[in-house]
Amino acid sequence: MNRISKTFDALATQGKKALIPYVTAGDPNKEATVPMMHALVEAGADVIELGVPFSDPMADGPTIQLACERSLAHGTSLRDVLGMVTEFRQTNTTTPIVLMGYLNPVEAMGYPTFVELASKAGVDGVLVVDMPPEEACDVDAMFEQAGLDFIYLLAPTSTEERIKTIGEVGRGYVYYVSLRGVTGSAAIDVEDVERNLDRIRQHVKAPLCVGFGIQNAEAAARVSDVCDGVIVGSALVSRIAEQADNPQQAMKDVSELAHSMRVAMDAHEALEA
């Protein structure tokens, strides 16, 4: 069993939900990322989504676009990101790492090289925003053999047919995009998410995690009620943006927000139980 499955199994046993923070690798600089990852685990993260910066992040709002720009200003490459994972794994062998980004840096590296290096570095899952299952079918087996989970998105507009497809091919967990828009847009509508997740659960066995629009601890707690994990990106990344010149302070602010979400989610679950 890989680290992602182990983590979700353990959480289910404890009656807890996964907290999954996203940060862009290399933001605000390359040296800041590995300490940030450790700090997030310390703050209560169960899985880390590590963003691979891309020059044209079409599915992201301004917060993550700017994070990509800050990171690329230092020339952060996919190889650098894999190096960060390798370094993180020297002292943490349990927290799952999911690389999240766009296809072109992977295409440029070449699939066999990427799969080999990612697996060796200790990556557990890959979420390529612009790689739907129809286009991934040629390389899917290669990822599976290397023990890399291909994580897919589902959206409010996904049809039943697509939900079925992704239920079949998706591994690790499914990332449910809670609203129509890009990352960092509006606030989340929990009732709407719940209705959609009920629909999705009929065809998807993998854990369902929800992202987009989760801005604070209270929202994280309410969303965690209806899903298996909560993904927080832009809210954390905007803390980094505010302290881009002071990575130490950025790390502290990000940890605080993540920790407040952890506490609120756990208190909420305890209350429900």
Binding site: A59, P132, E134, L153, A155, S158, T159, V177
Partner: peptide
Amino acid sequence: GRFVSETLTAALD
């Protein structure tokens, strides 16, 4: 091909 996020799939269909 069609290399887009799931959020655009329904519209393109």
